[in-house]
Amino acid sequence: MKGVAQAAKMSAAGIFTGAVNGIFGGGGGMLVVPLLQANGRQPLAAHATAILIILPVCFASAVVYLCGGWFDAELFLAVGIGVLAGGAAGARLLGSITPASATLVFAAVMFAAGVRMIV
């Protein structure tokens, strides 16, 4: 019974995560990390495994956006190269930073960006 409850909990989280990721074009990973940690994974493993979960989810919603006509070759190429280079660096950095301090700085930046977008 414990396994069924666990599966139901993970599916419910998937429904919420997927809806948010489709509507806002991202952010799903932010929701999956605490879910995985609640299921007993270590913080580093949760961060890594979240990427595995979000990969097919982002692929599916990317197809929907592209079909909706949201494509700009120069923008996509420039951002794509930047994200690829930054992503490789970030994955290596993961083992060498203090998670709490990174989280706090990140929270402050996101809050400022959020307020700027509302007003």
């Binding site: 991202g26 990973g29 932010m30 961060h47 930047g82 992503g87 490789a88 660096a89 970030g90």
Partner: peptide
Amino acid sequence: GGVLGGMGMGG
């Protein structure tokens, strides 16, 4: 965005 995304923090 890539540096944060690579750390799994929602780039």
